[in-house]
Simulated scan of single mutants.
Amino acid sequence: MKTFTLEEVESHVTAEACWMVYRNKVYNVTDFVQDHPGGQDIFLQFAGTDVTSLLGDVTVHPHSDSAYDLLDEYCIGQLSSPTSPATDTDTVDLQKQTAQMGHERDLQFLDLTRPLFPQLWHATYSKAFYLEQVHRPRFTPHYVPYFSDPILDLLSRTTWYTVPLVWLPFITYQLWRSLETGDTATTTVQGFFYGAVFWTFLEYVLHRFLFHLDDLLPDHPLALLIHFTLHGIHHHMPMDRLRLVMPPALTVIISFPIFQLAKTLFIPTVTHAFMAGAFFGYVCYDMVHYYLHHAQVMKIHFKEMKRYHLAHHYKNFESGYGITSKVWDRIFGTVLELPQEA
């Protein structure tokens, strides 16, 4: 194995060349900088350093088994002069064994080098095994197709800019229809506001009671397939940029009954304004969701929501359902408590 000095490691401290040391081995983690779940800024704080003690202290910076699997892929050599004490060997060996066991379980669940849908369609594992595995996040530097057919697979993935591109014209049309059928703009503004507020509630309800319907999920392969398609794929591969925002076809299916209900309850002016507000809230939600996963966020509000949402993915998926805010989590008692930052 190639050897490096600590001085060589310490000279690689940027996003373009980021090295680290763990248990006297050298890792070139440059390709992972932008997709680190905690953000690029916290990752680069430890660039060029020995992170052995950091990763070993689960009370400070806990990592999943899959994190150690991933780390092995970036190993480029070892230190010429060891810096970590030999007394930690037993702990490290246990971590490696645990990581290896996790890796073996993952291979039994899904092969991330092949299309996922056929594997799930023919799966025979239990609901308990499925839920254990789907909530163990995996990072894949390559794109994982969902369908074997390239056309179907194209429909299953969505770029972030597709959402505003498709729905902003629809929102504009609904506002125009509201103004056209109403006597004053006040009714349109009020309807738009109520629609946006309604979306924040729907965001919480969908996330908690549809996407995380784990307890009531039937122990049947078809139910597991539907669960994985709706949201499980995002929890299993949370940093996949093309499986993060909702495909337009799924948005239409979910929104259709809401549109029909609004038409029944409201006059046309309010209906159009309400749907414009609801879809505007949805667009903001999907953009914020992508922003939290893949951007260096603003410190005001979004930094806290990034910590909050990533804790939902990596620490406790049974709470912290709010993405744009914690309002409905507070109302319904599902706030995910986070430790105070130093």
Rank of each mutant, 00 (worst) to 15 (best):
C18Q: 03
Y74I: 04
F201A: 15
R136P: 00
V51C: 04
F46E: 10
L110C: 03
H235F: 05
M305R: 01
I76M: 08
F32L: 03
F198K: 10
P221N: 12
V270C: 01
R330I: 04
E132T: 11
S255H: 07
P248K: 06
F302P: 01
A342S: 12
Q119I: 00
A223W: 07
E10K: 15
A196W: 14
P257Y: 05
F332I: 03
Y194L: 15
Y125S: 06
A67M: 14
Q100H: 14
Q260L: 14
L155E: 06
R208V: 04
L71P: 00
D240V: 00
C284K: 10
G322F: 07
F228A: 01
F46C: 02
D240T: 00
P218A: 08
F129T: 09
V245C: 03
D41M: 11
D88V: 13
F302Q: 11
A86F: 02
F147T: 01
L261H: 02
G322I: 10
M239P: 00
V134G: 04
F147P: 02
L44C: 02
Y146I: 00
T89A: 14
P62S: 02
E180K: 11
H301L: 13
Q45C: 08
T229V: 03
E203T: 03
P257M: 08
E341S: 12
I151W: 14
L250Q: 12
P85N: 04
L244E: 08
F192V: 09
D219H: 11
L202Q: 11
S255K: 07
L120A: 02
T186R: 11
C18E: 08
A128W: 08
P339N: 12
Y290G: 00
S148F: 00
Q340C: 06
K306Y: 01
Y285H: 02
E341I: 13
A185N: 10
M287K: 11
T49A: 06
F139I: 10
T200K: 14
F256V: 13
H220M: 05
A273C: 03
T229L: 11
D286A: 04
L338Y: 09
I300Q: 12
A196I: 05
T49Q: 15
A311V: 09
T184S: 15
T98F: 10
I258R: 06
K299M: 05
T186P: 00
R136C: 13
V26D: 06
V163C: 05
V92Q: 12
H135M: 12
E337F: 01
T5K: 01
A128M: 08
H234E: 11
F32M: 02
H63P: 02
Q78S: 15
V26W: 04
I258P: 02
T140K: 13
T162F: 04
F228L: 02
D153V: 01
T52W: 01
F317Y: 12
P118C: 00
P257C: 10
